[in-house]
């Protein structure tokens, strides 16, 4: 196929991604991560091709076995001859900005497979268990032709929900020995789960944890799902015992993911589309927040005004209110445009 676009332009790269060029795939994800000015143009060219991939998030506390489960799920998907993309997020140091990304160690069997693409990503400044460019990376993989995308989050605690906005199905992985049933009843990470996995099922306490979790999800009368807008969802979260390190229970996890997908599909032709559109709206809102933040503070004048107001005895709330009112009236505070 001949191209009308220069090879190194945004459109040229997008075209190469659509043609299955892995070098272009990997470079576009870097552009997304680095905030490269060419990325939005490339993404625009890919947008019409999105929507084919099923996006599955794998989240849970550190050491629960997320990477090992991702590896086993990917191998199982490969046995079904599916194209698989993996995004593995690890934390960045808030002090140095550096990161050690080690999830590939547990995915060695997949490295030589040309139908699998694995990308490690540092969380950089995000604190919700994902990376800012996570959704972008999934979009590029989707356009490239991946049929399944597995997103492994940072090891999370009780309040990291960003994975919900990036995935069609969220799998929460727990393991025995990390707290009693009351931990499982707290608000938080369990509420993002579409599927619960008790990993390391050969360890003492696994059955008990699975029982506690089953109780917790069954007695939750209303599942208020901010992203899909569903209240009182008909989906009962399955609790699956697995031992990913021994390749046990993986097919059952996959079955639970497939059932969740079937449930979304059964909501009618627009069920899945509605859920995805609402997530996309939430992403747009986040991007607007980021761009506002970047543009509003892209000036020294505003900082000086804040300092002066503080010196004059104003409170944080008073200053913020005045500044936002002025911004909405069109005050520029010497701000420069985004590109400068």
């Amino acid at each position: 196929m001949t191209s009308n676009h220069p090879k190194n332009s945004a459109e040229g790269y997008a075209e190469r991604v659509l043609q299955g060029d892995r070098r272009a795939l990997t470079r576009l994800i870097s552009w997304a991560e680095n905030g490269d000015g060419r990325f939005p143009g490339a993404l625009a060219a890919l947008y019409p091709s999105l929507g084919r991939a099923w996006r599955v998030g794998i989240t849970g506390p550190p050491g629960a076995g997320k990477s090992t489960l991702v590896n086993e799920l990917a191998l199982a998907m490969r046995r079904e001859d599916l194209e698989v993309g993996i995004l593995a997020v690890d934390p960045s140091s808030p002090f140095t900005g550096g990161a050690l990304l080690g999830d590939r160690i547990r995915m060695e069997e997949l490295t030589g497979d040309q139908h699998v693409y694995i990308r490690s990503m540092a969380s950089r400044k995000s604190h919700g268990g994902m990376a800012r460019a996570g959704v972008d990376a999934c979009d590029v993989m989707d356009a490239f032709g991946m049929e399944r995308i597995l997103i492994e989050t940072v090891g999370v605690g009780q309040a990291e929900y960003d994975v919900m906005g990036a995935c069609d199905t969220v799998v929460v992985v727990m393991c025995p020995g990390a707290g009693d049933g009351v931990q499982a009843m707290k608000a938080g990470i369990l509420e993002v789960a579409d599927v619960l996995v008790v990993n390391k099922s050969d360890l003492a306490g696994a059955e008990r944890l699975a029982d506690d979790l089953s109780e917790a999800v069954h007695t939750r009368a209303i599942r208020s799902d901010e992203w899909s807008g569903e209240v009182g969802s008909s989906w009962t979260v399955p609790v699956v015992l697995a031992s990913a390190g021994k390749a046990q229970g993986v097919d059952e996890v996959l079955k639970a993911i497939t059932s969740h997908r079937a449930m979304l599909d059964s909501r009618g032709p627009n069920g899945l589309e509605d859920a995805r559109r609402k997530k996309r709206v939430a992403q747009v809102r986040r991007v607007i927040d980021e761009e506002l933040d970047a543009r509003v503070w892209n000036t020294d004048e505003l900082g000086a005004r804040v300092e002066n107001a503080l010196a004059a005895g104003s409170t944080a709330y008073g200053i913020a209110s005045e500044v936002v009112d002025d911004l909405l009236r069109g005050a520029a505070f010497g701000m420069r445009s985004k590109e400068s």
Binding site: L101, I105, G112
Partner: peptide, 23 residues
Amino acid sequence: MEVIYTGLHQTPEMIAEAALQED
């Protein structure tokens, strides 16, 4: 820096493939 560590016993093909995937 962002460092990707791949573990032991890597073949040249595996190393080059990981370098590509990780850009």
